[in-house]
Design a protein around this nucleic acid. Structure first.
Length: 561
RNA sequence: GCGGCUGUAGCUCAGCUGGAUAGAGCAUCUGACUACGGAUCAGAAGGUCUGGGGUUCGAAUCCCUACAGCCGCGCCA
């Protein structure tokens, strides 16, 4: 009996009471009732506060209503006992057998356990990182790499059709500054103003020279174009390789420049500008072209074409949004750093200008910035000054799994401070190892079981009522939570809930493991009992949940450590 | 000045679409190694949930306010 089934059973009881006239609910019977694991032992296996929530509407008092529900619920198959406590809580105890069958269900579902259809039918575009291709990815991108990737995985698990997208800012003056910096490095000139510095520029300049011999000897006008193209190509490739190493994958690498190439009626910036004009949301002033975003709540209007004729980033952003919508996405997720939160207002206003309801089509997640301390002092990151802690360095120093996990276990809106010394030194204390260890432990136990000739029972060979110890029940109820955790994680776009859940579940498993009465393997020459076999199913179920959960965070589930 | 985020144990942080005695890890202290992998488990100690008001059966959670920290308010990218 899962919490979902219990919730349904309570709704059925309420419906019956309502039909019989024992209960009058003006707004009808709720379709969903909250069932949760109580924090306190002694409050049953599950608890619900439904009586307190409905009492006022039904013009009765909570305890009287609780009595009615309890009586009905006691007749439900699988429910062992119902108690009324405090102001009107219903504390429910479930029969061991009814609870134990879940273990076999999880094993049968395998890699699909935890997946739901709560977001079925939604086509979601998740855009994240979207860095300039003018340098390596750094600490500032690392959090988004982890969260964006995990959100993509979690949304998929909730049934959505997800496309993960990286928007390449390959257009704009920064690309010329990039080229000029490479040229300056190769020719021994001082770094240009507004240029990029750092060892990576020198290395990249050498790589450009190696890949295209003679490129720096071209005439000046050709040279810049050629170096820009080659440097871009190599730098983008490096970003892609490093993200692949970091286990972060994209479905689409979208070039900003491609939005400007078109102009043939297939979308892109020219068509976007025309459409905005037709909709009457643009005007000229001071030689510039503006979008009237203040009509939709923005603080000020925004420039699309500057008075010098150059297009702004915002013009590209608008065309890009329309491009996504034209590709059929119902929702566009943007993951932005806190330093871009001023963008939210104009993005939403822009969506309104083109006739969308941003509450339906746009989701902007603002994440707070990660600070990094070394020797107690904050490292200021600046690509142009060349002081960079790169994603790749971090990943190699701490390990991909540990770095991903330690970023994934915090919500995006909590500011994070990482101390370099601490995360490297304390890596053995990282909760990721605790969770991975629990998984490795299940693997060793099952290998031992195989050595003893134990075979995972199926059908009638599996006796769920053997899982009757208090610890069995605690573990089963923890495993039963997984689909709900995934669903809420997807709905709220908060993958850290999965990490916290896994830590809790791993802890429950370890406690179970240390309980003498719950041994899976027979001791000494003892024969294999049906209880041993039933617990074997429970171990496989636990392993399945941990593996699936870690997978949603892009973290591996090792068999040995 | 306006706006966003944050303020919970010594430290790092969960919990925030209102529920029962506010949780975890680390650090500290005490136990369990004739072990299904001890990277574990059992226990102790540790709190005016930043301050002040309000809403109600009930507030860390919602509203108002004050204070503190980080970030943002370009015809930059």
């Amino acid at each position: 009996m899962t919490p979902e089934q219990l919730s349904t059973a309570i709704v059925d009881v309420l419906t019956t009471l309502s039909d019989e006239g024992a209960l009058a609910l003006p707004d009808g019977v709720p379709t969903n009732v909250t069932v949760e694991r109580p924090r306190q032992k002694g409050h049953g296996d599950y608890a619900t506060n439904v009586a307190m929530q409905l009492a006022k509407k039904a013009h009765t008092n909570p305890r009287a209503l609780a009595e009615l529900i309890a009586t009905g619920l006691k007749g439900v198959d699988g429910v062992a006992d119902v108690e009324i406590a405090g102001p009107g809580f219903l504390n429910i105890t479930v029969e061991a057998g009814a609870q134990g069958v879940l273990a076999a269900e999880i094993v049968a579902a395998g890699a699909g356990y935890g997946h739901t259809n709560t977001l079925k039918g939604q086509r979601i575009n998740v855009e994240f990182i979207s860095a300039n291709p003018t340098g390596p990815l750094h600490l500032g991108h690392t959090r988004w790499a982890v969260l964006g990737d995990a959100i993509g995985r979690v949304l998929s698990a909730a049934g959505a059709e997800v496309t993960r997208e990286f928007y390449i800012n390959d257009r704009g003056v920064q690309m010329n500054h990039f080229a000029d910096s490479l040229i300056a490095s190769a020719t021994g000139q001082p770094k240009p103003e507004d240029g990029y510095a750092g060892a990576y520029i020198d290395e990249l300049a050498a790589a450009v020279a190696a890949a295209a011999p003679g490129i720096f000897d071209l005439p000046e006008d050709e040279r810049r174009t050629a170096v820009r193209a080659k440097g871009y190509e190599l730098q983008l490739k490096e970003q892609q390789d490093q993200l692949a190493f970091f286990n972060t994958h994209f479905d689409v690498w979208f070039s900003e420049l491609s939005l400007h190439d078109s102009g043939d009626g297939s979308g892109g910036v020219p068509d976007t500008l025309k459409r905005l004009k037709d909709l009457g949301h643009v005007y000229e002033e001071g030689g510039a072209l503006w979008m009237r975003t203040t009509d939709f709540g923005d603080d000020k209007d925004r420039v699309l074409i500057k008075s010098d004729g150059e297009l702004t980033y915002f013009a590209s952003d608008t065309a890009y949004y329309l491009n996504k919508r034209a590709r059929g996405f119902d929702r566009c997720l943007y993951l932005l750093g806190a330093d871009h939160h001023g963008y939210v207002g104009r993005l939403k206003a822009m969506a309104s200008c083109v006739g969308d309801d941003p509450a339906q089509t746009l989701d902007v997640l603002i994440g707070q910035l990660v600070k990094i301390l070394r020797d107690g002092a904050e490292l200021k990151l600046s690509k142009r000054a060349g002081t960079i802690v790169t994603l790749h360095e971090l990943a190699e120093e701490i390990g991909v799994d540990a770095l991903r996990y330690s970023l994934a276990r915090y919500p995006a809106d909590s500011p994070l401070t990482l101390d370099v010394a601490e995360i490297t030194k304390a890596s053995n204390d990282n909760p990721v190892y605790y969770v991975q260890y629990a998984h490795a432990r299940t693997c060793r136990m099952l290998a031992n079981a195989a050595d003893l000739g134990m075979v995972l029972p199926t059908g009638d060979d599996f006796d769920p009522s053997q899982l009757s110890h208090q610890r069995d029940g605690e573990l089963l109820r923890a495993l039963a939570e997984f689909p709900r955790v995934v669903a809420s994680s997807a709905e709220l776009r908060e993958p850290h809930r999965i990490a916290r859940y896994l830590e809790d579940t791993a802890s429950t498993f370890n406690k179970w493991y240390d309980t003498k009465e719950c041994r899976m393997l027979p001791q000494g020459d003892d024969a294999v009992t049906s209880a041993n076999l039933a617990r074997m199913v429970l171990v496989v179920a636990t392993q399945t949940v941990i593996r699936n959960g870690l997978g949603m965070l892009g973290v591996t589930a090792p068999e040995r450590m």
